[in-house]
Design a protein around this nucleic acid. Structure first.
Length: 651
DNA sequence: GGATTGGCTATTTTT
DNA sequence: TAGCCAATCC
């Protein structure tokens, strides 16, 4: 193989980069920190870096790239494939959670799990906690399920934190419940979200030869959005890179917005502390290729109000001029705000011909989307909402998924409990409580009781039996059917549509239709990618680990509505940030804590720097909050932005 | 066992 | 306001 600098393809590849970018791309050996400001071509650097490695003869299987969402992973893989030509199947580009899941599937036996385990999402986790509290006769007024859950999550994401010294009764109780919780997970052959990270780490700590294998394999590791990694992700990364130390992390402290989820900004700020300064390199990408200068100046002036920032932020540079300043608008009420939004979009669409997919509306909380949706709907503007009560979290979808999960893994007690009486089989709460309690006392999964029809009498017995036979039947036949056929048969076998109608939920029938077509699409997509027909297991996994923006497709010609958190990593020509009011943004819950307030400010910074052409910030004087009309003050963020970068609409 | 009602409360962001 | 839960009634 020729020297990459003279290889025509590789040379061209580097030609497209700025000098700093090129250096960041080609410094492949040793630990590297890339501080990449918003819009500075971060993804470009990562993909070129991977392509560069491949051009230098590194095998695809030797590279691991970790991203924040599945969407980002997919795009990154496509871009790499395009750069180097051809597909690179053995190259792992995944999210942390998918990585963990893949590792656990391969090595479940070390943890005494079956490899067909299911993954519990937050809703499942909460149900399990509630079940444990109920069985244990705990007083849910004193011990809140949500509280217990957040403690469990914290422990899992901080595996090296010293044991809590708090020996209060409450604390000890929560710890006892956490132990029970973990046992029940095991019994259900289930891992929760936290396990997907904590357990692989545990695996590596307990199995040095296994760790050695992966350390040898992944000679080059890249981690994107490093400012939003938490403790366990940090430990996992450090462990995997422990041998070759060719670890490249990319991030931006000003875009750290997930501390509430355990993200620790120190991971990026103190990255170099773990490595030999002689080998370590840092690159600052400060040239912005996305936004006009005035928008960057506005964003910059806002973020300068963060005083707890540990490093001096390097201002972003841009040559792009724009006739438009950042536009601010204050409406009388939320309706006026929505009208403004609607009119501006229609106006720009008409005068510039920009497609609707060029527009994005960001808000702080999902609840804000409803009014906007109504306004857009009324004017027949096409839009699409991301996040919120997501499709996969709809009751009907969760029901069907629960069935599918039991078919794969009958030990999944949370799912079993969810659907054993859907449709009505005469198995009520009393029967269920009794069975669950007996199962947990006997140390077995609920399914074991169902299977033996143990301790079920009367009409409930018939119902349990019918349920059991149904599951057994589908389990036996599942591998002979295509995925869409299986789902269709299931929906019919449980008379799900008649059940919904009987419940007066006719309007939900279309969700069932949508689910069925989604399954078909999933199979089709795998087919076009040249992959084998997906198993039920594959489908379930991809559904559980899917994130809000994973289905975002810009070609749809629709206005995008999403929370500011979902906006990270995206860009749109025209951006609206609505509800710029005290209590909403910054959110009231951040008022008392300066650190949280700074995170809100970073969130605003993230939102502003998404804009490629124009940025609108809107607020209103009155708004319905919790069913009450309340007087709203403009957000402090508005007054923190340099006035010279703003033009107030209508003045 | 199951449906209905009434009261309460929480209201941020998500892999 | 809406969604959740517990008590109540059939």
């Amino acid at each position: 193989m020729s020297d990459p600098f003279f290889d025509p393809d590789t040379h061209l590849l580097l030609d497209q980069l700025s000098e700093v970018q090129r250096e960041a791309v080609t410094s492949v050996d040793g630990p590297v920190l890339i501080l990449a400001g918003a819009g500075s071509g971060k993804t470009r650097v990562i993909t070129h870096r991977i392509a560069y490695l491949l051009a230098r003869g590194v095998q695809p299987a030797e590279i691991l790239a970790v991203t924040f969402t599945n969407k980002a992973a997919r795009e990154m893989r496509e871009r790499v494939d395009r750069l180097v030509g051809g597909e690179n199947r053995d190259l792992w580009v995944t999210t942390f959670h998918s990585l963990g899941s893949r590792l656990l599937r391969r090595h479940a036996e070390f943890l005494n799990y079956d490899s067909d385990f299911v993954i519990y999402d937050r809703d499942d986790m909460l149900r399990l906690v509630k079940r444990i509290l109920k069985d244990g006769g705990y007083d849910t007024d004193r011990i809140k399920p949500a509280e217990v859950l957040s403690r469990i999550e914290h422990w899992k994401s901080h595996p090296d934190e010293p044991e809590d010294e708090d020996d209060s009764f409450l604390e000890k109780t929560i710890r006892r419940i956490a132990v029970r919780y973990q046992n029940e997970l095991k019994r259900a052959n289930a891992f929760d979200f936290g396990d997907l990270l904590a357990r692989p780490l545990q695996l590596f700590q307990e199995q040095p030869e296994l760790l050695a294998r992966y350390q040898d394999r992944w000679r080059y590791i890249l981690v994107d959005e490093y400012q939003d990694t938490n403790r366990v992700q940090y430990l996992l990364t450090k462990t995997l890179a422990g041998k070759h130390k060719n670890l490249c992390v990319v991030g931006d402290e000003d875009q750290s917005i997930y501390s509430w989820r355990g993200a620790d900004i120190r991971n990026i700020l103190e990255f170099e502390a773990d490595y030999d300064p002689a080998e370590f390199r840092t690159f600052h990408l400060v040239r912005n290729y996305r936004s006009p200068r005035v928008i960057l100046e506005a964003a910059q002036s806002l973020i300068l109000n963060n005083r707890y920032g540990h490093k001096k932020t390097q201002p972003l540079e841009s040559d792009r001029e724009s006739p438009w300043k950042v536009t601010c608008f204050q409406g009388r009420d939320a309706r006026a705000e929505a009208s403004f939004l609607r009119e501006r979009i229609q106006d720009i669409h008409r005068t510039t011909g920009a497609p609707y997919s060029d527009f994005a509306v960001f808000y702080r909380t999902h609840a804000q989307s409803r009014l906007l949706e109504e306004a857009l709907h009324l004017s027949n503007l096409p839009y699409r909402v991301f996040g919120g009560p997501r499709f996969f979290e709809r009751m009907e979808v969760k029901d069907l998924l629960a069935y599918l999960r039991i078919i794969v893994n009958p030990k999944d007690s949370v799912s079993l409990e969810r659907v054993i009486n859907i449709p009505r089989r005469g198995v009520g709460a009393t029967t269920l409580d009794r069975m669950a309690l007996a199962a947990s006392e006997a140390g077995e999964a609920l399914w074991a009781r169902v299977e033996r029809l143990e301790g079920v009498k009367g009409k409930a017995r018939k119902g349990v039996e019918a349920f059991r036979d149904l599951i057994v039947d589908f389990r036996a036949r599942k591998s002979d059917m295509t995925l869409p056929a299986l789902v269709e048969e299931l929906v019919n076998a449980i008379d799900y549509r008649p059940f919904l109608i009987e419940q007066g939920r006719d309007d939900r029938l279309e969700i069932v239709d949508e689910f069925e077509s989604l399954v078909r699409e999933f199979v089709l997509e795998m087919e076009t990618r040249g992959e084998a027909p997906p198993s039920l297991e594959t489908f379930l996994e991809s559904v559980t680990l899917a994130s809000g923006v994973d289905t975002l497709d810009s070609a749809q010609g629709q206005i995008t509505l999403m929370t500011l958190h979902n906006a990270k990593g995206l860009e749109f020509p025209f951006v609206f940030i609505v509800g710029m009011e005290e209590g909403i943004f910054p959110h009231a819950s951040a008022f008392s804590d300066p650190h949280q307030l700074e995170e809100e400010r970073r969130l605003c910074y993230v939102g502003m720097t998404r804009a490629m052409q124009r940025l609108f910030l809107t607020c209103c004087g009155f708004r319905m909050v919790r069913g009450r009309d309340s007087f709203q003050m403009p957000s402090r963020f508005l007054s923190e932005i340099d006035r010279s970068t703003i033009s107030v609409y209508g003045k």
